[in-house]
Design a protein around this nucleic acid. Structure first.
Lengths: 374, 374
DNA sequence: GTTAGTTTCTTGCTGGCTGAAAATAAGCCG
DNA sequence: CGGCTTATTTTCAGCCAGCAAGAAACTAAC
């Protein structure tokens, strides 16, 4: 069993991250990556093997069979386990993950009833604990807990403003940590997704990228030079309200023909007289046959704008229906029309994200915290 | 006289940069900034004093006169001197700068006549040398040379594509370096401006910011987390062609109502049947009374888009007439309309940049190279 | 089976850089 | 001039890196 709740020292952390995200490698291969001599690399490797995070295996060689065979270092995924929880307005979705971010088990529980429009904090903590206990049964122990929700998070532990839950300045991280006896980290859900992508997705090849989430509203996250931006300066407002068409529909902020007016479901629903919070993709598509094309076009422009502003070729799209939207020819054509003539197309990935994926994001953040990356 | 052409080790460099850009400071003050113990800070300080880059002066104290007085460390601006040269299509503009980037002397020379549309490289090198020799007379010696021009630069020394001069794959840096016997660095002019801003402008308070230049065309540079982006992914195309109005004028790329169509003078001139390369602000304003307002609006949106995409509050505007443009109420109103309600306004600085300022940018890049920051 | 050859990994050692603490310096004040 | 206070330097021990020598693991002869 793992003997430490500690984080790894910086170098060891970097190597572990590399093994987790890029797969097994030899000592000297890693040395080349991290600009370390074989000797130093060897010392780091031993540390990790002793900590149980990394294992050695003999190379099942295919070629070059002369000399001492190289040992392959592999991260041991089940050396640590974490639980990730995503809180929505009424439900806690949980996943059990190993070190590699693989989901081992799922569960969800309803959150307690609201009192005066506010979800009771103490009972929410209990729900999270229940979830952790239930999921934790499958593994020797849980090494960390990650919680994500839509809202303003301060300092990895405090919910500054959790609109969906009616919370304000709630130290949820500490409460959960105490209740469960396990270190807990709290993140904004989109930031958590960005952290997950930084290790296991776009970040493997690019250290600057943008994340765009299309759900009830529009969300963004930014990773610049490997740094995840904790708080947007504008809550995404500047991008959401960039103009497309002065004669288009009006968003709730009063902008005519802005991205939001086309793409933000709350805005579109408000215009159609529907209930914004629960409106679905299908409802909108049925209600307004033109909506789909307009939204696809807005998405194409939005992607181009984010790529141009951040100067990155890599954009991550997230949200349940975003793949469908991006799959619309108008989206891709719009984007292509914005690209310089003859340029390589952008690398846009779409992940059909359900609540489980969001919970996994929270889990990955916990992995990072357990390993000492936060 | 300075005894070395070397660069400083990383720590010493950081301290020098801080002294140059933030003014004099005490040892322990610097220690706090760089998270170094007094002991280590003291060692770094001695290194720098011995190198002549930094001088000590007794604190002319105002208060707290108990105990041993602190020594104030100050960068010695005239410990090094560099020449910065900006090449346009027909002229070389040069400045002599000290370490602090202060311009000590100016000069300019015409470039040689074109042969088959190409400016002869060897004679251009001679012009640069002439400029350096003339400017260098005012100081004991020149420690570095920086050259900037509009075009694609590769590896700090080679002009990959210099459209204004008709050059392609010209190793100008090495040629000048050899001809002058002084290390020379080459940069794209907008990148050079960004580097200058990183040390002496916006970078003093923000380590992520965007630079927008409005001249004959539109230019951008991006600094992310203190890293200057060497090559834009799209030559600014994505931003320049973001839509404002589907019923607006058309740019040369065929986009209707994009930023470029309003703000890029080449585009506007082409539409008015003027010669794009030499068209001035006044000509356009006279020719088309609506142009000014449209351009101001486009600038407002462009600023908002860059700020939103990069997620920075800090934008640097550059170009001869950009202050006038940004000073137009429509620009500021447009920008304000894009900001989230109740948000702090962005920090937008405008610098009326003439050729001398561009040359200074090249000089600052040379300073950075001389000190070892490149 | 043994030895030579090759490549990988580990260990011993040195050098650079760091911080803590002790020593020294530089000013005040009586 | 000693006593007091604060700033800077020196001394010393610790950490971490690379170099180079050694140990390990394997193949290919002989």
């Amino acid at each position: 069993m793992s003997d430490s709740t500690n984080g790894l020292p910086p170098r060891a952390l970097a190597v572990t991250r590399h093994l987790l995200t890029h797969g097994p490698a030899t000592r000297s291969g890693l040395g080349a990556v991290f600009q370390l001599s074989d000797a130093s690399m060897s010392r780091v490797a031993r540390q990790l093997v002793e900590a149980g995070v990394v294992a050695e295996e003999a190379e099942r060689t295919g070629d070059a069979t002369i000399g001492r065979p190289r040992q392959i270092l592999t991260a041991v995924p089940n050396s640590r386990h974490v639980v990730g929880v995503k809180l929505t307005g009424d439900t806690a979705y949980g996943v059990l993950c190993d070190l590699a971010g693989t989901v081992i088990a799922l569960a969800s529980l309803p959150l307690p009833e609201r009192v005066d429009g506010v979800v009771p904090v103490d009972r929410t903590v209990k729900v999270v604990r229940q979830l952790a206990v239930r999921l934790g049964k499958k593994v020797p122990r849980i090494d960390g807990l990650g919680i994500s929700l839509g809202g303003v998070i301060e300092g990895r532990s405090v919910v500054g403003d959790g609109v969906f839950l009616g919370w304000h300045d709630v130290p949820l991280g500490d409460l959960v940590s105490e209740a469960c006896g396990v270190p807990a980290v709290l993140t904004n859900d989109v930031v958590g997704l960005a952290r997950e992508q930084l290790w296991f997705g776009a970040g493997r090849t690019h250290d600057t990228f943008g994340v765009i989430t299309v759900g009830a509203g529009l969300g963004y996250a930014v990773v610049r030079e490997g740094q995840v931006l904790e708080h947007l300066i504008d809550n995404g407002h500047l991008l959401s309200h960039s103009p497309l068409d002065v004669s288009g529909p009006v968003c709730r902020q009063g902008h005519r023909g802005c991205v939001s007016a086309y793409l933000d479901r709350m805005d579109v629903a408000a215009r159609l007289g529907l209930d914004g919070a629960d409106v679905t993709f299908e409802q909108l598509a049925q209600q307004d046959p033109d909506w789909f094309a307009g939204a696809a076009r807005a998405l194409g422009h939005l992607i181009a704008t984010v790529a141009g502003g951040l100067q990155t070729e890599r954009i991550v799209l997230a949200g349940e229906d975003v793949a469908t939207l991006y799959g619309h020819p108008i989206a891709t054509e719009t984007l292509a029309g914005r690209m310089p003539p003859g340029a390589e197309p952008l690398e846009v990935s779409t992940e059909p994200l359900g609540f489980t994926d969001w919970a996994r994001g929270a889990g990955v953040v916990s992995i990072q915290a357990v390993l000492g990356a936060l």
